[in-house]
Design a protein around this nucleic acid. Sequence first.
DNA 1: TCTTGCTATCGCTAACAACG
DNA 2: CGTTGTTAGCGATAGCAAGA
Length: 208
Amino acid sequence: MREGHIGVDESGKGDFFGPLVVAACYVGPEHLAELDGVRDSKKLADGVAKKLAATIKRTCPHKVLTILPHKYNDLYRQIGNLNRLLAWGHARAIEEVLELQPCSQVISDQFADPEVLKRRLFEKGKRIELISMVRGEQDIAVAAASILARAEFLWRLEALSKEFGVDLPKGASPAVVAAGKRFVERYGREALDKVAKLHFKTTHNVLG
DNA sequence: TCTTGCTATCGCTAACAACG
DNA sequence: CGTTGTTAGCGATAGCAAGA
C-alpha cells in the first residue's frame, strides 16, 4: 500500500432488532503496524471485534454513523429502498472521513447499485475513485470499517436490551420473533418502532 | 482430547428477468 | 400487471476437519 485509502462497511442490515450502523475508516501505510489482527468482522468473535474497534478508533481517522431504529424506520419510509438508504449512509460517512483525511480512493463491499453512491460522491465535487468489490472485507480498510460497524451495532443492541429489560437477539431467527412478542406484550406494538426495523417480514410474525 | 476454522444451510433483505 | 425464480449480500448455526 503506497497511499492510504478509505474503507466502508455496514452492520445490522440483516438484523431485525437494533440500529443500522455504517462506518468509514482511513488506513494508511503508517497505521498497518497497529492494526495487527484486523480482518473481516464476520470471522471474529464479538469480544475480539470490540477490542479491535477500540484500537482502530485510537489509530485511524474514522466515522461511525448509527441509525437507530426510530430514525431508520423514518428514513426507510422516505427513501423506500434499502440500497438508496445505504448509499446515503455510506456517502455521509465517507465525506466525514475525507474531511479528516483527504485521499483519492474508497473501497466498499459490493452492493446492488454502486452507481448511486458514485453519483452522490461526485456531486460533492470530490475526485474520488470508488472501488466496489465482492468480498471487499479482504481489504484492511474495509475490514477495519466492518469491525467498527459491528462493535457499534453490538453495543447499541446491548444498550437497547438493557433500556427495555428485554433480551434482543441478533439476526432474524425464531428467538427474535419470541423476543419481539415479549417486547410488544410489555410495551405495545407502537413501541416496536424504537427497537426494530419494521419493514422486515419478521414484524408480521411478531404482531401476527 | 480439545479448540479452532471452514463450509453448508437457513432466513432475511433487494434487484432483475421471465412468464402467465 | 402481479407472481415466481435467480442472483447476491448479510447474520446465525451446526457439523466436520485440521491443528495445538
